[in-house]
Amino acid sequence: MLEFANIRAIARKELRDALHNRWFLVFTIAFAGLALTLSTLTQPGGSTFRAMSYSRTAASLINLVLLFVPLIGLTLGAANIAGDRETGALAYLLAQPVNRAEILLGKYAGMAGALLATLTLGFGAAGVVLALQRSVQDAGGYLLTVGLAYLLALSMLSLGFLMSILARKTATALGGALFLWLLLVFIGDLGIMGTTVSMRLPIETVFLVSVLNPLQMFKIASILSVQANLEVLGPAGLYATSQFGGLLLPLLIAGLVAWVAVPLAFAVRMFGRQERFVVKASAR
């Protein structure tokens, strides 16, 4: 049976570690800085700085999130368990009266807390700047985008943790995380476009293949949340709108939740069965 007190104790430690992690601080500052910059960009022809609307800022932040959040989520997750395994800290932790699911969920909760705090800081700073200068009429779409960014961050963290459990070494886990990042961010998009052109795939297939990628799910859901239609995505967007109508956004959110839960469930299951963390050939 899971003990929440153990999960909380480990989560607190992970959160504290993240706050002392130099790379994590760099990411936080960079993300907050870029978000602030995007929210205070000058309008064309204007001689003074004027804030953009929430929707326009959210649309600008989507691309920032698509690039940064998967990278930090995947790498933080991938380095976590594998790093502890390599230093021996995991073996020592496992010798304490905690079970493996508590350890993994505690670590996940701590890292998730740190990651979401970073996103909140970035989106929050941009939101405050906009609130100070403009009306808050379209703040709902902005907040929905923030929520979707949370889900994307958690899904990437889940995949990172799964990679950390599968890999024997931290370097392997990090390499795998970077490869997956490239696959999701760049190859996913270009691959789908290339395949569509070369194989003349029907539009519904293109749409279904693209939404298998959690980044595409986030992108489509975010666009929907700030402008209510998918014309910007061309025929695939029009097909999605006509096919699913008002159900599309809830379906995409459910899809992102699945990308959070399924890899994490696999990670818990595999970690529970693993003996790699204690078995060193030289120490039997």
């Binding site: 153990n6 430690k13 002392h20 021996g88 073996a91 020592y92 010798a95 304490q96 009266p97 905690v98």
Partner: peptide, 25 residues
């Protein structure tokens, strides 16, 4: 349990004892 060489997290000595105290109730 005392291992041959305990691998602790990067914390202060008192924080380390408090962390494991929480896990051990």
């Amino acid at each position: 349990y005392v291992p041959q060489e305990a691998a602790f997290y990067d914390m202060r000595v008192d924080e380390t004892a408090q962390f494991y105290a929480r896990l051990k109730k």
